[in-house]
Amino acid sequence: MSTQNDNPPNPLPAKVGDYGLAADAASEASPAQITPTVAMIRTLGLVSLICGLIIVGSFEITLPAAQANRRLAAERAVFKVIPAAKSIAEYVALPGGGIEPRVGAGDTAIVPGAVKFFAAYDAAGQLAGIAAEGAAKGYADTVRVMFGYSPACQCVVGIGVVSMRETPGIGDKIITDKDFLANFKALDTKVSKELAALANEIKVVKHGTKTQPWQIDAIAGATITSRAVGKGINEAAQMLLPRLVPNLDKIRSKP
């Protein structure tokens, strides 16, 4: 075993093993000596200054790359649920109704109660669809799904999973099971006449009993995860669509 006592002023005998945290940390100063407060403050100030410089420097260096990454990730997720999309723009639907483009980065820019969504545009710059995120508690953890909404048919046209921790081989069938994904080719999400909520609540039903276009046929054996997907979409759609539908014309073409 090696001991790290190559420090010449250290008078202590070599100790085998240095697992003990405070073994001889005080070897630099004699135990009786008490450091004056000013010196402590000076040291901490110095250390904080150095550290602050390092953090700010690295933040500035990495910011462009990190932002580009974030935009790429959002685009990838949106393009998956709206295949015709070529570019995206970020909006928020305000709690009192109305929508506005999202400015600034980070979650701090969002007013409480506002819902974030993406408007996706095709190659010609026309609105191809809306993508938004929904989340609900699944079997193991929150399941976050991105769903694509088509204003033309007033329905959900595709979903993708943003994050989940469901049991591999069972819960993750929600992204592999073809029958389940077929539910989201045209899932009815018409808004009610009063523009207060969806005309029909999106519901997950037992495997093989789907009768209505707003129902989701659950996966046999992965009912809890299936329900989480339906619940997440339902909650997000109930919040977003009544605010979005009257304002669709504002985002018809690319800004």
Partner: peptide, 14 residues
């Protein structure tokens, strides 16, 4: 430079 009284705090900051 690090006084022993505040060493843990300093290490954590670093």
């Amino acid at each position: 430079q690090i006084p022993k009284e505040v060493r843990i705090a300093t290490y954590i900051v670093i």
